[in-house]
Design a protein around this nucleic acid. Structure first.
Length: 904
RNA sequence: GGGCUAUUAGCUCAGUUGGUUAGAGCGCUUCCUUGACAUGGAAGAGGUCAGUGGUUCGAAUCCACUAUAGCCCACCA
C-alpha cells in the first residue's frame, strides 16, 4: 500500500545511492551511438546556487532523456580550481591566524590550499547529488589534477613553439587587492558618479601665481584620476585643434613636481571633450600607454602592486593609498592654485570580478596568447553550421566578439594554479654577459623541467647545467587556461584514449550566457586547434536566474534563493520541474519561492493519481492487460490517442531543446488528460477492468515521459505500482514513442474520434456552466436535452449521463427550438431543464438585483440594493430601465430577455 | 560609441515556419469538503498582443519607423 503522503526525502535518500551504486550513471565507450556532455565545472570553492540548479537541471533532463532513448550517454562531472577565488578563501583563513601567504612560503601555501580542497572541495559535488544529477562520478575530474595539468603544459608548450604565446611588456588590468593581472573580461565596468577635475599646467618659463592672481600662461587639462599626475610624461592635443597649435612642441610644468613635460599632438585626443587637452600617463592608462609608445615617452610607474604610491610619486605621497593620495594631491593642487574647477562626471570604472576592488592599469611583463589565428577557424565552424548555438541569436554575439578579439593575458601573479612551464637560468648557472644581453632568448619553455634543462644546455653549450640552475616562472596561468581544454582534457588528452575516440566531440554544451566569451569561445578555439574538431555540436545557452524584481541574486542583497532550502521544503523533483517550467531559453528567469509550489503540487498530484490506481485495481476481480482489450469506448480511444500524441510531441520538443515546452506538455497531458478527464471517466467506466488496463499502460508512459524532469518520484511510483522489478530502474527504461500503427488500428483509434470526444467534453463543460449560472447544485440530477445531428452522439448516452449527472438525456434535431437555458457547442446545443431545481422566487430576486445593477440603480447604494423591499417593489421600473440601458448591448439584452422568459 | 534583446491578462511568462475563438501558472470572483488529491475539483472575470505605417486574402507573428526597458562589449581623459 502506498502511503497517503509522498515522502520525497525518503525517495531521494533511497534512489540516488541506488542509481549511483548500481553503476547506472557510468558509461563505457562501447557500443551505441554516443551522447556526451561535459558539465561546466563549478568552482571548487562554490556552493550550489540557483544558477547551477537551472544549468544542471537542463543538462540532466537532456542526459536522462538521451539515456532512455538508448544512446551511449556520458555526462562528465568535475570542478574548477578557480585560481583567485580559491586562493582568496585560503588567504582569508590564514589571516584569521594572523598570517599572510608569504609567511608560509609558496610550497607550504599551495600545500595548504590542497588541504583545503580535500576538506571542503567536495561540498558542491555532494550538493549536485541532491539535485539528482546523473553524472558519471567515476569520471569526476578537477582542472588541477594530474591529467588536466599535463594537458595544460602540453598546450602551453605547443602554442609557444607555434609562436602563439609570447611574453610582453604591456599595460594590463591589475587588481591591487588580489595582486594579480586580470584579463579584459575579468574586469567589470560599473557606472561611477565621479568628478572631472580641471588642472592647470603652467607653460614652461612662466610663473604661476597664487590663487586668484594667476597669469594667463597655463593650459588646463581635465582628468578623472588626478592621483596619476606624478606619472605624467606629456600632455597631448589633437593635431587639428587650432586652439592649441601654437603650444605644440613646447613644454609645460607638471604641477607640484616642477618637472617639465612636452606638449604633443596625437589623433587620440578628442577636441570636444574636456578642454581638448589630455595629460598623458603611459604607465597608468592603456590609451596613454599607446600614445607613449607612438611618441617614445618614458613610462613612469608611480604605484606599488598593492595600490599604494611609490617613491616616484614624490616624497610626500609615497606610501599613501591611491585614494588617499587623490585627496591629498587635490588639496595640494588647490592650495597651489592649480585646480581650475571641478565638474560632476559619470563614467565607467573597472572593478575586479572577484573582489570588486577598483582595477588599476598597470605596466608589467605578462604572458599573452595571440588570439586572432585561433579565432578564425572557430568563427568558421559556427558560420558553416558545424556548431550551432541554441537559440541561434547568440551566434551573432559570438561573431561580434570573435571578430574583435584581443590577445589574452594568461599569466596571473598567484600561487594556486598551473605554474607557467617557462624556465630561466639562475645566477648560479654562470651565464655569459653576451648571452645575458639577449635575455629574452634565455627562457626555456617545455612540458617538464627536464626537457627545459636539455634546451638550456643546448642553448648555452654548457652541459654541466643541472635542474638547480633553472628557475621556473613564478606566475601561474589564468584559470580559464585549463578550462578551455575541458572537453578533451577530461577524456584523457593528450593520450589517445578510447574515451576521446568515442565521446569527442561532445554533443551538447549547456551554459549561461555570461560565460560565452570566458569559456565557450575559448573552448571552441582550443578544441579546433588541438583536436582538429570543435568540442561540441550544439551550444545551448540559457539565461540567468534573477530575483523576482529582476535584479541579480546576491547574498549581500538578501534576495537569493538557496536551492538546497527549496529541495528541503519542496523536494528536488519540485525544484527541477518548476525551474524547467518557468525557464525559457530566450530570456532570464525571475524566481521567487512561491513559484516552486507548482512542482510540489504536481508531485502531490502524481502521487495521488498513483494511489487511485492502486486502490481501484484492488477492487477489480479479473484484471485485464492492454494486450487483451477490445471494443473500446470513445473515451478510451481518446486517452490512447492523446498518449500517443504526447509521446511523439514531447520527443520532438526535446529534440529542439525546448525544455519548457516539454514540461508544459507533459504537465498538461498528465493533469488534464489523465487526471481531470480519463480518471474521472474510469471511475464510472462500463468495463472497469478494461478501463484500468488502459490507465495502467498510459500511466507508465506518462511516468517515463516525466522521468527526465522528475527522476525521484517517477522511480518511486514506478516501483510502487509494480511496473519494475526491484533491481530495475525507470532511468534505464525506454523513453515512450507512442503506440504502433498496428495497435492503433486494432483499437480503432483515429483523429476523428479524438476530436469527437473533445467536442463531447465541451458539451459536458457547457452543462456545468449552465449549472453554475442557474445555481443548480453539481450533485443534483438534471434533465438534459441535446440538439445535434451527429449520429454518433446517441452512442454516448450512458457516458454523458454519468459525466453530466443527468437523470435523462434526450436527443433532438439540431434545428429544434429549445427553451432557455442552453449553450451551443460543437457537439450539440445543450439544454438544461430547470423544473423543480431552482427556487424561482429567490432566483428572481437575485436576477432582479443584477438587473438593477445593469440598469444603473447601483448608484442607489449597496444598502438599498440589499433592501428586499426596494427590489421587490421596483421590478417594473428596473426592467424598463434595464431594457433601455441595454439597447446597444445585444448580448446582454438577449440575456435579459432570456431571464424575463424564464422567470415571468 | 558598437552590438543584442524585449514590450502579450493584475503578476511571471508561453505562443515553433503568418491561418478557426491569443494560452499557462500564480492572483482574483462564485460554488463544491462527492472515498486519489483542498498542495484538490467546477465555473468565471480579466487582453484594441507598446504605438504608427507597410506587405498579405489573412499579422501577436514579416518589414520600417517611434517610444520605453534591459543586457553585453568598448580606451573618451
Amino acid at each position: 500500500m502506498m502511503d497517503k503522503h509522498y515522502d520525497a526525502k525518503a525517495a531521494e535518500a533511497k534512489w540516488y545511492p541506488f542509481w549511483e551504486n548500481s553503476g547506472f550513471f557510468h558509461q563505457e565507450p562501447g557500443k551505441g551511438e554516443p551522447y556526451s556532455v561535459v558539465i561546466p565545472p563549478p568552482n571548487v570553492t562554490g556552493i550550489l546556487h540557483m544558477g547551477h540548479a537551472l544549468n544542471q537541471t537542463i543538462q540532466d533532463i537532456l542526459v536522462r532523456w538521451r539515456r532512455m532513448q538508448g544512446k551511449n550517454t556520458l555526462w562528465l562531472p568535475g570542478t574548477d580550481h578557480a585560481g583567485i577565488a580559491t586562493q582568496n578563501v585560503v588567504e582569508k583563513a590564514l589571516r584569521k591566524e594572523g598570517k599572510r601567504r608569504q609567511d608560509l612560503g609558496r610550497e607550504a601555501f599551495v600545500e595548504r590550499v590542497w588541504d583545503w580542497k580535500k576538506q571542503y572541495g567536495g561540498t558542491i559535488v555532494h550538493q549536485q547529488r541532491m539535485l539528482g544529477n546523473s553524472t558519471d562520478w567515476q569520471r569526476e575530474r578537477f582542472t588541477l589534477d594530474e591529467g588536466c595539468s599535463k594537458a595544460v603544459a602540453k598546450v602551453f608548450t605547443q602554442l609557444y613553439n607555434e609562436g602563439l604565446i609570447y611574453k610582453g611588456n604591456y599595460i594590463v588590468n591589475w587588481c591591487p587587492r588580489c595582486g594579480t593581472a586580470l584579463a579584459n573580461d575579468e574586469v567589470e565596468h560599473e557606472a561611477n558618479h565621479g568628478h572631472l577635475w580641471y588642472v592647470r599646467y603652467p607653460v614652461a618659463g612662466s610663473a604661476l601665481g597664487v590663487k586668484g592672481e594667476l597669469n594667463k600662461d597655463y593650459i588646463c587639462v581635465a582628468t578623472t584620476r588626478p592621483e596619476t599626475l606624478p606619472g605624467d610624461t606629456a600632455v597631448a592635443v589633437n593635431p587639428t585643434d587650432e586652439r592649441f597649435a601654437a603650444i605644440v612642441g613646447k613644454n609645460v610644468v607638471l604641477p607640484l613636481t616642477g618637472r617639465e613635460i612636452p606638449v604633443l599632438a596625437d589623433d587620440y585626443v578628442e577636441k570636444a571633450f574636456g578642454t581638448g587637452i589630455v595629460k598623458i600617463t603611459p604607465a597608468h592608462d592603456p590609451n596613454d600607454f599607446l600614445v607613449g609608445k607612438r611618441h617614445g615617452l618614458e613610462e613612469v610607474n608611480i604605484m606599488t602592486d598593492d595600490g599604494h604610491m611609490n617613491e616616484l610619486a614624490g616624497e610626500k605621497y609615497c606610501g599613501m593609498d591611491r585614494f588617499e593620495c587623490r585627496k591629498a594631491l587635490l588639496a595640494d593642487l588647490e592650495e597651489g592654485g592649480y585646480l581650475d574647477h571641478v565638474e560632476d562626471y559619470d563614467n565607467q570604472v573597472g572593478h575586479c570580478y572577484r573582489c570588486h576592488d577598483v582595477v588599476e592599469s598597470r605596466l608589467s611583463k605578462q604572458w599573452f596568447v595571440k588570439m586572432k589565428p585561433l579565432a578564425v577557424p572557430a568563427i568558421a565552424a559556427v558560420r558553416s553550421g558545424e556548431v550551432k548555438f541554441v537559440p541561434d541569436r547568440w551566434s551573432k554575439i559570438y561573431f561580434n566578439w570573435m571578430e574583435n578579439i584581443q590577445d589574452w593575458c594568461i599569466s596571473r601573479q598567484l600561487w594556486w594554479g598551473h605554474r607557467i612551464p617557462a624556465y630561466s637560468l639562475r645566477e648560479s648557472a654562470g651565464i655569459s654577459e653576451e648571452l645575458k644581453v639577449k635575455s629574452d632568448e634565455l627562457v626555456f619553455v617545455a612540458e617538464t623541467a627536464e626537457e627545459a634543462l636539455e634546451k638550456a644546455k643546448a642553448k648555452t653549450g654548457n652541459a654541466a647545467l643541472t635542474l638547480a640552475d633553472l628557475e621556473q616562472d613564478p606566475d601561474v596561468l589564468d584559470t580559464w587556461f585549463s578550462s578551455w581544454l575541458w572537453p578533451f582534457s577530461t577524456l584523457g588528452w593528450p593520450e589517445n584514449t578510447a574515451d576521446l575516440e568515442k565521446f569527442y566531440p561532445t554533443s551538447d554544451l549547456v551554459t549561461a550566457q555570461d560565460i560565452i566569451f570566458f569559456w565557450v569561445a575559448r573552448m571552441m578555439m582550443a578544441g579546433i586547434h588541438f583536436m582538429g574538431k570543435p568540442p561540441f555540436k550544439n551550444i545551448v545557452i540559457h539565461g540567468i536566474v534573477r530575483a523576482a524584481d529582476g535584479s541579480k541574486m546576491s547574498k549581500s542583497k538578501g534576495n537569493s534563493l538557496d536551492p538546497l532550502e527549496l529541495i528541503d521544503a519542496y523536494s528536488a523533483d519540485a525544484l527541477r520541474f518548476s525551474i524547467a517550467l518557468i525557464t525559457s531559453l530566450e530570456c532570464d528567469t525571475k524566481v521567487n519561492k512561491e513559484k516552486f509550489e507548482i512542482g510540489r503540487n504536481f508531485c502531490t498530484k502524481i502521487w495521488n493519481a498513483a494511489r487511485f490506481i492502486e486502490m481501484q485495481e484492488a477492487n477489480i476481480p479479473e484484471k485485464k492487460t492492454i494486450a487483451d482489450i477490445s471494443d473500446l469506448t470513445a473515451d478510451e480511444k481518446h486517452i490512447l490517442w492523446a498518449t500517443d500524441l504526447a509521446c511523439r510531441k514531447i520527443g520532438e520538443i526535446l529534440e529542439n531543446y525546448r525544455i519548457q515546452d516539454g514540461a508544459l506538455a507533459v504537465y498538461d497531458f498528465f493533469w488534464t488528460q489523465i487526471c481531470d478527464w480519463y480518471v474521472e471517466y474510469a471511475k464510472d467506466a462500463p468495463d472497469k477492468a478494461r478501463a484500468f488496463a488502459i490507465l495502467r499502460d498510459v500511466f507508465y508512459k506518462a511516468l517515463r515521459l516525466l522521468h527526465p524532469y522528475m527522476p525521484f518520484i517517477t522511480e518511486e511510483v514506478s516501483h510502487a505500482l509494480g511496473y519494475l522489478k526491484e533491481d530495475e530502474s525507470v532511468m534505464l527504461a525506454k523513453f515512450p514513442e507512442g503506440y504502433s500503427q498496428e495497435e492503433k488500428s486494432a483499437w480503432g483509434l483515429s483523429a476523428e474520434i479524438y476530436e469527437f470526444v473533445n467536442a463531447k467534453r465541451e458539451a459536458i463543460t457547457a452543462l456545468r456552466a449552465l449549472r453554475a449560472e442557474y445555481k443548480v447544485s453539481p450533485a443534483a440530477f438534471v434533465k438534459v436535452t441535446l440538439a445535434t445531428d451527429d449520429a454518433a452522439a446517441s452512442g454516448e448516452v450512458e457516458s454523458l449521463k454519468k459525466a453530466m449527472r443527468a437523470e435523462t438525456i434526450d436527443f433532438v434535431a439540431s434545428g429544434a427550438d429549445l427553451p432557455m437555458p442552453s449553450k451551443i457547442t460543437k457537439f450539440a446545443t445543450v439544454y438544461l431543464s430547470l423544473d423543480g431545481l431552482v427556487d424561482k422566487a429567490a432566483e428572481s430576486k437575485r436576477i432582479t438585483a443584477e438587473l438593477a445593477k445593469l440598469a444603473g440603480f447601483i448608484k442607489a447604494s449597496e444598502a438599498k440594493l440589499s433592501n428586499e423591499s426596494f427590489v421587490a417593489n421596483a421590478p417594473e421600473a428596473i426592467v424598463a430601465e434595464a431594457r433601455r440601458k441595454l439597447a446597444d448591448n445585444k448580448e446582454k439584452a438577449a440575456q435579459l430577455e432570456k431571464l424575463l422568459r424564464l422567470f415571468a
